[in-house]
Design a protein around this nucleic acid. Structure first.
Lengths: 146, 146
DNA sequence: GGCATATAGTTGTTTATACAACTATTCAAA
DNA sequence: TTTGAATAGTTGTATAAACAACTATATGCC
């Protein structure tokens, strides 16, 4: 039993993602307070389009670790908010490419600042080298389970 | 900017809780495969009742980091599944104490084994001392934001 | 060319979350 | 003792996630 070092209470926090839930809630609050009508989940889709506009829905599935129906509905809602537009691909008509509107392009800087703020608040007082170890462990966990 | 060491891609993983999502999905799959009709969220409520039966809904809110409506509905569903029972408190009639049924009591051992299995799979190859650092960082993150 | 199969996306259903507004009960202070 | 505030829980509404079943288009093999 190589890694069975979890006392009961610690097991719970790992499974429920207490820390990342707290981070997401804090960022959501910052978005609300800034008057941005945007959920974290919508933000997470925009995030990948800011990196590269015109991704397909399938590419957004892979990038955000969501299934296809989830992305369909997030894109539905982002379209209603006038933040993205579906454009059928020329080459392959099964594919929708998703493009940011002007309005969404303008939101990038402000929301990224809020995201960085959130992480700085979350990691206040944590030494750099411990953050590095933590990032490394979380990546391994993800790789082990994917 | 003491802790602003996040490159863009890493920022994303921290906020979205990629690792804890993967852990929760893996445990959900194990519950399904074992034929247990139970969501992770329902499991997380039972978890605290297994530790101490008869907690109030408010105590379950605190223990699971959920708000009151979320607990109301989780308890609704657990009651429908015949896993818990609401019992009005004698002393204070505002309070519901939540008690496990026989059926739910019997599920503890099996699901705890699945949860530990999940974590062992998640943390395979991660050295103990790194797990300790990771737990510590996640706890500080939670404390910083709560 | 035609058919099986794979891929991209949508729809239906159930469960869960977050927030606001609400009811019921308790407590405390004038 | 009454009244106003605090506490416990519920209900309404919007958004999201997971899974299954579905449509439409593309691909590959005969």
């Amino acid at each position: 039993m190589p890694n069975n070092q979890f006392k009961k209470g610690e097991l719970y926090s790992f499974i429920t993602g207490k820390a990342s839930t707290a981070i997401a809630r804090r960022l959501q609050k910052k978005l609300n307070d800034a008057g941005l009508k945007l959920t974290i989940e919508q933000w997470s889709v925009l995030y990948h389009l800011w990196k590269e506009d015109g991704k397909s829905q399938q590419e957004l599935c892979n990038a955000t670790f969501r299934d296809k129906p989830s992305i369909t509905r997030l894109v539905d809602n982002l379209e209603k908010l006038n933040l993205v537009k579906r454009v059928a691909s020329e080459n392959d008509r099964r594919i929708n490419k998703i493009f940011l509107t002007k309005q969404a392009q303008k939101m990038q800087e402000q929301t990224m600042i809020l995201a960085e703020e959130t992480l700085n608040e979350a990691l206040e007082t944590v030494p750099l080298e411990k953050i590095e170890v933590c990032k490394e462990v979380l990546q391994i966990v993800y790789d082990n389970l994917k």
